[in-house]
Simulated scan of single mutants.
Amino acid sequence: MRIPGPFRVLVVLLLVVLSWLVGSALFGGESGSPLINFFTGKRGASVEPTSAETRPRKYKCGLSAPCPPKHLAFRLVSGAANVIGPKICLEDKILVSSVMNNVGRGLNIALVNGVTGELMESKSFDMWAGDITVLLKFLRVLHEGTLVLVASWDDAATKMDDEARRLFEELGSSVAKKLAFRDTWVFVGAKGIENKTPFEQLMKNNKNTNKYEGWPESLEMDGCIPLRPPGARPLEQEGV
């Protein structure tokens, strides 16, 4: 039986369209084509933002917003239990970390020039079995305006005496008197600060609330530290 002419034309057209659709699917034709969408039931394709567009932008030391001019971006991370060491970042430079192999049990301290923002010295002090006089000598000779960044690890207070607590209070600490065995502490102070620092966090060691067995959770703190006025003389450290 012969197929009527008009019907043959319709069959040919359908074969052409189907061949084109198959070819587009196999060879990467545009999925957003109106014709394909018509046959597949899809609506017009929307342009999805790339991962770079959706990912929040990070600034120095991972801050979510940039610091104002003449301010230093910082991030402090205390150690976790006695396993993961602390980290101190300033202006996108890692001053203290396990990777740099310059951390230790107790108090990890970085001294920074309050005028230039340059690292002066970093050191760790064992507050479980160390000699407290080493820490006292370190703190007694600080010059006016020196920034002091502290991140604890494991135990920050067993060897702490009244003088050490007083010296940290003079640097702006509000919690130095309360610091106890295995408390977690992060702190940014300065020699000669007039008021208590806004950059300090303390997590008490409490067996009922500890995240780790025998230790509270790690603390993380970031922010922007104002530099000293331009006319202030550069700082130096002596006798450490």
Rank of each mutant, 00 (worst) to 15 (best):
L26C: 03
A110R: 02
L95Y: 00
T184I: 03
K196I: 08
L95R: 00
L26A: 08
P4R: 08
M1A: 06
A129H: 15
C89A: 01
L135N: 09
V112T: 01
P234W: 11
S33R: 11
G223Q: 06
K87A: 14
R8H: 02
S46R: 06
E48S: 14
R2D: 04
E30N: 15
I193Y: 00
I109R: 01
P216L: 06
K87D: 09
R57S: 07
F7W: 12
E144I: 03
G231N: 15
V186Y: 01
F138N: 09
G28L: 09
V188K: 04
E220R: 05
E220S: 10
E91H: 09
V96G: 02
S124D: 11
E163N: 11
N208C: 04
P234Y: 09
G23C: 06
G189V: 02
P66Y: 09
K159E: 15
D183S: 02
V175D: 13
S78H: 04
T50Q: 14
P4C: 03
I132N: 13
S122G: 05
E118K: 13
N206L: 04
N113D: 14
V134E: 14
V47I: 15
H143M: 07
H143N: 11
E30T: 11
D183W: 00
L13C: 11
N101C: 09
K196R: 12
H143F: 04
V175E: 10
S218Q: 15
G231Y: 13
E30A: 13
L26R: 02
L119D: 03
K137G: 13
I193V: 06
L111V: 00
G130H: 12
L235Q: 12
P34H: 09
G114V: 00
M100W: 08
F181A: 11
M127S: 08
R105Y: 00
M120P: 03
Q201T: 12
P226S: 10
Y212N: 05
V22H: 02
L21V: 06
C61W: 01
N205M: 03
G117F: 04
K177D: 07
E118M: 04
N101W: 15
V9A: 10
A180Y: 04
G192F: 00
L90E: 01
C224E: 08
S31F: 15
R57A: 07
G214C: 01
R57Y: 14
V77I: 12
D222K: 05
V9W: 12
V112R: 03
E30W: 14
L13T: 13
R55D: 09
G114D: 06
K70C: 09
L142Y: 01
A176Y: 07
S218C: 08
T40I: 13
A45Y: 14
G29M: 13
L10F: 14
S19D: 05
M203Y: 01
I132K: 08
L171Q: 02
V186H: 05
P49H: 07
L235G: 12
I84L: 07
L179G: 10
G85Y: 01
S19F: 06
L72E: 04
L135A: 08
K58I: 07
G192Y: 00
I193M: 09
K137L: 15
G231M: 15
L139V: 01
V150T: 08
L76V: 03
S97E: 04
G41I: 07
L72Y: 03
R2I: 01
R165K: 13
A157M: 11
E238S: 13
V150A: 07
A73L: 11
S24H: 11
L227P: 05
V150K: 03
G117W: 09
L111Y: 00
P86K: 02
P226A: 14
Q237R: 14
K70N: 15
T146F: 00
